[in-house]
Design a protein around this nucleic acid. Structure first.
Length: 428
RNA sequence: GCCCCGAUAGUGUAGCGGCCUAUCAUACAGGCCUGUCGAGCCUGUGACGUGGGUUCAAAUCCCGCUCGGGGCGCCA
């Protein structure tokens, strides 16, 4: 069984072990050197003495970030800071790192974010960056577990699509043999088709593409969307599902990762459902009382969102958005046709989730194509599913990177994206 | 699409007309060193994005270009 740094505590003093990792740093004297070895779980000091190593001269010239395998005796009474070290009797160089490094892993100089992203493979060697993705992995696992416990089907819908823009967002175009195709902006239409198929409760985790020329710290052109759609459910039901699944996943993650999370966000352990709710119209009144001049039908500017966020702790819902600000498949409010049964989940000042009760009536859908100026021919594959038995349904879509960004108080959504795709970046 | 800002060694910076054959840190290379842990000490290598212009003189001022950062708009 492979031994990791965080296993060493459980092992006995003087035990003979082998451990693999990267040479994070070296401290060298003539006949004695220390190597700080890093693996995915932490760092440990390796003590290498000339008398104990046949290839001491070779090891003496090891470069930082080289990959080595160390065999030796575990010393748990070390005078090193951690109290643990490994007295090496054999060190094998598995991969020799070139110098100088394009950027340091532990250097005491700052590195521009752009430089970090250009050298992401090495940037991700920093434990604090690895942690972000451990967090994301645990969080997503928690959401999956919650969905699975609630009898959801996890599905995978196509990302290459024929046309059928939902209106608004620009799509990336690509060649598909003799035809034109697009990268899908959302699994929305396919989720709904599956509802007509009787799949009942579906969720999908997958990429979504937006060809918008944004240039902000909260937009990506490719992001991971967690999408949910439920038959015979309404907007209130899916809002509860959303807050309960998030609280479950967050609690589970905080429990598992512990102090690591607190270093990013100390208040995460206090997240509870239900989340506060405010309507779109109440939001306008509140904001206007704070000096904004917002009219019905306006979307909220980033500045307005910040002001509104100050009113709430973490998560909160904004409900009852005007039909003009919502896509064609959103169910109008039966009491006020100008409004819809829709909601956004906000985390601080950022929109995390957008969801709604959907239209399930075929004729109402056709009418909405007209209102939104969409060509119904483009939606034939979709509309067909409504014509032959479509239950009422509701759902939402959640941006995973934005969620992680905000939960960990990161200043840029690219921090919670392994290899971000933005307005100018297509590599690595 | 609009607006603002930036580009100097591998990395991060100082310099903002002549004291610049360009500062400092870090990294890197070599040397001393058997208990370091921000190791220390000595020595060394290494840079002004690009094309024009102004000037006796440009890293420095002006214009274009390229690349990048950010804000807004737009954004199921």
């Amino acid at each position: 069984m492979r031994i990791y740094v965080n296993n060493l505590n459980e092992l006995g003093d003087n035990e003979k072990i082998t451990i693999n990792g990267w040479v994070q740093e070296t401290r060298k004297m003539k006949n004695l050197m220390f190597i700080i070895l890093r693996d995915s779980t932490g760092t440990v000091q390796i003590t290498a003495k000339k008398d104990n190593l046949g290839n001491y001269n070779e090891i003496y010239d090891i470069t930082r970030e080289s990959v080595i395998s160390v065999s030796g005796i575990l010393n748990k009474k070390s005078v090193s800071k951690s109290g643990i070290e490994i007295n090496a009797d054999k060190i094998e160089i598995l991969s020799y790192a070139a110098t100088p490094l394009p950027m340091g892993v532990i250097d005491r100089v700052s590195v521009d974010f752009d430089t970090r992203l250009n050298n992401r493979f090495i940037d991700l060697r920093k434990p604090e960056n690895l942690f972000i993705f451990k967090f994301e992995s645990e969080l997503l696992f928690g959401i999956r577990e919650y969905m699975n416990n609630n009898n959801f089907l996890e599905v995978h819908t196509p990302k290459t699509v024929a046309a059928a823009t939902e209106g608004g967002a620009d799509l990336f175009r690509l060649k598909y043999f003799e035809k034109n195709a697009y990268l899908n902006q959302s699994p929305q239409l396919y989720k709904e088709i599956l509802i007509s198929s009787g799949f009942d409760k579906v969720f999908e985790v997958g990429p979504a593409f937006r060809a918008e020329k944004e240039n902000t710290v909260r937009h990506l052109n490719e992001f991971t969307s967690i999408d949910v759609e439920i038959a015979f459910a309404d907007d209130n039901y899916v809002m509860s599902l959303l807050e309960n699944s998030l609280v479950y996943a967050i609690n589970r993650t905080v429990k598992k990762l512990g102090d690591g999370v607190s270093e990013y966000n100390g208040s995460l352990k206090d997240v509870k459902s239900p989340f506060p709710r405010i309507t779109y119209e109440e939001s306008i009144d509140y904001l206007n009382s704070k000096g904004f001049k917002i009219s019905f039908g306006d979307d909220f500017s980033p500045e307005a969102m910040k002001t509104l966020a100050d009113k709430f702790d973490n998560f909160y819902f904004i409900t009852g958005w005007p039909a003009d600000l919502r896509p064609f498949y959103t169910m109008p409010d039966e009491n006020n046709p100008k409004l819809t049964r829709s909601f956004d989940l906000q985390l601080n000042d950022i929109e995390i989730t957008s969801g709604a009760q959907r239209i399930h009536d075929y004729r109402m859908l056709e009418q909405n194509f007209l209102i939104k100026g969409l060509n119904k021919n483009d939606f034939e594959f979709y509309e067909k599913a409504f014509k032959y038995g479509m239950p009422p349904h509701a759902g939402w879509g959640l941006g995973l990177e934005r969620l992680v960004m905000n939960l960990l108080h990161l200043s840029n959504v690219r921090e919670s994206t392994l290899f971000p795709r933005d307005r100018t970046r297509l590599s690595p």
